[in-house]
Computed example of a mutant assay.
Amino acid sequence: MSELRIAPVDGDAMMNDWRHVHNTIIPTAPLSPDDVRERVGRYRLDVAYLDDAAVGCATVRPPTDEEPAVTVIARILPAYRRRGFGRTLYEHGLALARELAADAPVETVVLASNEDGLRFALARGFVEIDRYVLPGDTIPFVTLRLG
């Protein structure tokens, strides 16, 4: 049986894998290659692979002066959900977040239409603290904080 392998984004092929997962799960806010390249410079981006297939992606955003929370986002493509991959990817991201800012609050962001993602976050103790809609969108993003 194959094991999930999680690796930091390194190079264009991995950026494309990360982008594919992101844009599949967040179709309302697709990112360009340049958007992802810019994020690689600011955040920790990882890709989860099963054999050679990208099945998920993660983002860990460090806290800033404006935003004191560390943000952990784990996304798994629908065809690969309910196999423990989301838990593994989330725990990986949470460990990285604790290395960056051990005492910072932990938040996540989920597109409101992603019912699986919301259930996943709520089951891990996150509580909703905010909703916002990007300009031109109609589906809100939900910000949740680990309780």
Rank of each mutant, 00 (worst) to 15 (best):
L122C: 06
G84R: 05
V36G: 12
V106K: 00
R44P: 02
L146I: 03
T108V: 12
A58R: 10
P68Y: 02
L146P: 06
V110E: 06
N23V: 04
L94A: 12
P62S: 12
Y43I: 10
M14T: 11
E91K: 03
E3V: 13
A29H: 08
H20F: 15
R81V: 08
M15Q: 14
H20E: 12
V72R: 00
A53P: 01
D10N: 12
R44L: 15
G125I: 13
F85L: 14
L45D: 07
V70M: 00
L94R: 13
V55D: 15
V127Y: 00
V9Q: 03
R82E: 14
H22A: 01
V127H: 09
T28M: 11
L89W: 10
F85Q: 05
T24W: 04
T71R: 04
H22L: 01
E99D: 14
V40Q: 07
N16T: 10
L94P: 05
M14E: 13
A74T: 14
P135S: 13
G136K: 10
E115Q: 09
D116Y: 13
P63Y: 03
Y132Q: 08
H92I: 09
I76L: 02
E99V: 15
R61V: 15
G56E: 13
F141M: 05
D51A: 15
P68L: 06
R61E: 14
D137R: 12
I73S: 03
R124T: 08
D46N: 13
V70W: 00
L45P: 06
G86M: 13
V70I: 08
L122W: 11
I73Q: 01
I26Y: 04
G84I: 09
L77A: 01
A69W: 15
H92Y: 14
V127K: 01
A13K: 05
N16D: 15
P68A: 04
Y49P: 12
D35C: 04
I76P: 11
P105E: 12
L146F: 02
F126C: 07
I139H: 00
D103T: 12
I25S: 03
V9K: 04
T143K: 08
A97P: 12
I73A: 01
A97N: 08
V109N: 04
R82D: 08
V47N: 05
V133F: 07
V60K: 00
I129W: 07
A29Q: 08
Y43M: 05
R82S: 13
L45M: 09
V9L: 00
R39G: 06
L144C: 12
A7D: 13
D12R: 11
G11I: 04
T28N: 07
L31E: 02
V70P: 00
A97W: 14
T28Y: 05
A13C: 01
T24Q: 10
V55P: 13
P30I: 08
M1Y: 03
S32L: 09
V55K: 10
I139D: 06
R5K: 11
V133A: 00
L111C: 07
E3Q: 13
P68C: 11
P78Y: 02
D52N: 15
V9G: 02
V60E: 10
R87H: 08
Y132V: 04
H22D: 01
T28I: 12
D103V: 03
W18Y: 15
S2T: 11
R124G: 02
L96P: 00
P30Q: 11
W18F: 15
L144W: 13
V40K: 07
E3G: 10
F126R: 04
P105N: 00
P78A: 04
A54W: 09
I25T: 05
R39Q: 11
L94Y: 06
L118A: 07
I129R: 14
D17H: 11
